[in-house]
Design a protein around this nucleic acid. Structure first.
Lengths: 227, 227
DNA sequence: CGTGATCTTGAAAATTTTCAAATAGAGTGG
DNA sequence: CCACTCTATTTGAAAATTTTCAAGATCACG
């Protein structure tokens, strides 16, 4: 898989970007790329064969199931993101592809060895973990003290930012990677409430829906209170 | 501050536990302990003099303020926890003491140097960051698809676990580190709803209130659906 | 032992969920 | 490529939950 890195779209942004060419090649020999179809599971909670991966393209969701079997989406993973449990004995979450995706997959043992061998990699993964932490806290902040409409608006805006290459500005037009049910799930609302909130946002002119998944932002500032 | 480590209550559980005695002494010379009174601010979002710290005793909250100035609690920090922004240019959150607390404080530059000098420290902080991530996701999971009563029950249970020395089992009797307002804030509910939920939990026999802050768990399984 | 703040409780108002169809969309096989 | 079928989405109206507004009760502290 040495050659894979040369054309990897996230070679400069993923954690492995901190490695030298030689180190990266060495690590690449331990891993391999894998393609996932929409809905395909990458890791399952409690799996014996624990592994980890960097997302190369596409999008993943990190989920958990409660006692009644309801899915709970805890995080979205975008390209260059890293998933996998390196410290707990077993993975705690299910990781599923939201769209056709490509990952660079490593056995946990190999990644642990690399962590020990390349100190900069440990720092890079620490850094990425902190970014995940910020993302989780952003989601947490979305959920609180706001009406359903504001929550949905905030989520749309977050998805628009994720869809944009230049992560600073939200994409003006993009496709939602999530179903209504998944959006509802992330916000702790019902499908119907999300659907109504989208209708309301469209009516007030904040956005336009293009079919079921397409979104065009008309007035992003209107979406969230703080754009 | 070399001697401080010898008697540090978190010397075996904080990130610095992975260092050798000599390394730890070296790091300790760069840091110093600081006592905080309840309500005192450790870090403020956007501060120039960015720093980081390990919590030695007490409890901290990590907060953010929205456009209308409403506080949003994003995380609770318990002893051995680490706070501080090592990678972003400025801290993003306010960190405030919930109870009288003691921290081991480091200038950001000193900690960055230590990260580079001691590879095991980078791994230890990465590990701790992953724990913070799990904690944030647990909070996220608390918030969703459940009634106010279940959310409050889940939070009480989480606080009971944190109050326990043996983190596996929740403490049977403990004092809430949070006001009703802070609990409401964490769950995206109002103070009144939290208060009513506690009254209801007491009436069904799940717990007993001892004054305003004291909690005795009578039937923990009743609190959250999945105990 | 006040005094201010926090907490509890009640009742009306508002929002969200639930239940129930109707519509639109995606995917499949002919 | 089209018709068909199954799933996802939208919308409506009633029910349930939560918030808001308003006092009263309790607690912490000086």
């Amino acid at each position: 898989m040495t050659t894979a890195c040369a054309e990897c779209p996230v070679r400069d942004s993923a954690a492995c970007a901190v490695l030298t060419e030689a180190e990266r090649d060495e690590l690449a020999r331990a891993g391999h790329t894998k393609k996932l179809a929409r809905g395909e599971t990458l890791f399952s909670a409690g799996d014996e064969n624990s592994a980890c991966a960097t997302l190369v393209s596409g999008a993943l969701k990190v989920t958990q199931y409660d006692a009644e079997g309801n899915e709970r989406i805890l995080a979205l993973i975008h390209p260059a993101g890293f998933v996998g449990e390196l410290f707990a004995p077993f993975p705690q979450y299910d990781v599923v592809a939201l769209t056709a995706s490509k990952v660079c997959l490593f056995a946990r043992g190999d990644m642990e060895r690399a962590l020990g061998a390349y100190p900069d990699l440990a720092i890079a993964l620490f850094r990425r973990s902190q970014e995940d932490l910020h993302a989780a806290r952003d989601l947490l902040a979305l959920g609180s003290g706001r009406s359903a409409g504001e929550q949905v608006g905030g989520l749309i805006l977050a998805l628009a930012r994720a869809a944009s290459d230049t992560s600073c500005h939200p994409a003006r037009e993009f496709d939602l990677p999530l179903t209504r049910g998944e959006m509802a799930n992330m916000l702790g609302l019902t499908i119907e409430t999300v659907s109504r909130a989208l209708s309301a946002l469209e009516k007030t002119g904040a956005l336009k829906r293009r079919g079921t998944r397409g979104i065009e932002l008309v007035n992003p500032a209107q979406l969230s209170g703080y754009a």
